[in-house]
Design a binder for these strands. Structure first.
Lengths: 181, 181
DNA sequence: GTTGCCATGTAAGGTGTTACATGATTTA
DNA sequence: TAAATCATGTAACACCTTACATGGCAAC
């Protein structure tokens, strides 16, 4: 799984420039690459070199010229192959859990403050996700099945943060109950 | 959050060598990401340089010599500070979701096979986690609160994969129902 | 006239993984 | 005698992020 596959995926929706791709990456939360310029432009050169995309240069009357990339048949086949490639397990990086693992180093009041801050961050994140999904009307689903998949994926993504929020709330409540014993 | 903090944390349990640390990182699932030789040995040199750890060299009668590191008071203070530092949100890397986002490229039967393979991977992972938690008796909790935290963290880690499993099962069932319409 | 968007790139630096190099001891 | 484990490190590479460089156009 690399950024090239995701680029092929985006280009299968419609031809795009590097700049378009950068925005596309930024729009879709669960495609985790921040989609930095470096990677995108570099990947496009490589995909072009391998013949998976073609390049057309647009010179509009006004504005800068853009290089628009289109998927080729070979590219479409590569996309299909990638979709069917062995699934990888998700990788969860959770620095806060590691921090918390040594939470015994601090006092109960300090610990609860830390947990409260984390709860806050997660809550804000969830609000942000919901706002974003409201705005995101441009789900590019061509078929009902595609739309269905897309919906399940984004819901699942939110569910992750919801579980996080529920967990931290229970934890705080239980620690509080303990403290009063 | 960097590997240095986790190292300080481990050393706060007991003095360890680089080799010990490497194993410690490998043992604890939710810290699993960081522990490669390169990083550990490099970080130890740096921590030593900053005076957060001291080094004693053991030359046992048999076997190779080992450099054992101990936390200093400054190190313990740095650990405390880190524990109280602003919490970071978890980062989820989920290549399979990205793959699935373009699942429309393949036929329903192929898609279900893919989902089945993923379900299998998650199931195996969960089994592995449960086995591991059975073996892991060496929870280094000094206090009841520490043990409590540790237990909540590892349970939460499993819950993540459990949610994953539930999600994929529902998804498959619903896709199947759709197909029969 | 300054900010922001469109558009293409480069450079530098940090993070993280895999493999390699070395050498002694223990276990099968 | 071959392997695995103990133990310390180095090297090379891939990945990913941040910031920089350039320049035109539009809007306020």
């Amino acid at each position: 799984m690399s950024i090239r596959h995701a680029i092929l995926g985006f280009l299968s929706w419609r031809p795009m420039s590097g700049y378009d791709l950068k925005k596309a990456f930024g729009d879709v939360e669960f495609i985790h690459w921040a989609g930095s310029n470096n990677q995108i432009y570099h990947a496009l050169v490589e995909l072009h070199h391998r013949g998976l995309v073609t390049q057309t240069i647009e010179n509009p009357e006004s504005g800068p010229s853009r290089k628009v990339y289109h998927v080729t048949d070979a590219g479409r086949e590569a996309l299909r192959e990638w979709v069917l490639s062995p699934p990888e397990l998700p990788q969860l990086r959770h620095p806060f859990l590691i921090q918390l693992a040594w939470g015994d180093q601090v006092e109960s009041a300090e610990l609860d403050e830390l947990l409260a801050r984390y709860e806050d961050e997660v809550r804000v994140k969830l609000l942000m996700l919901r706002e974003q999904s409201k705005r995101m009307t441009h789900t590019p689903a061509n078929t009902p099945r595609g739309a269905f998949l897309w919906e399940r994926i984004t819901t699942h993504w939110s569910a992750f943060y919801e579980q996080e929020l529920a967990w931290i709330r229970t934890l705080r409540a239980d620690l509080d109950a303990h403290r009063k014993d």
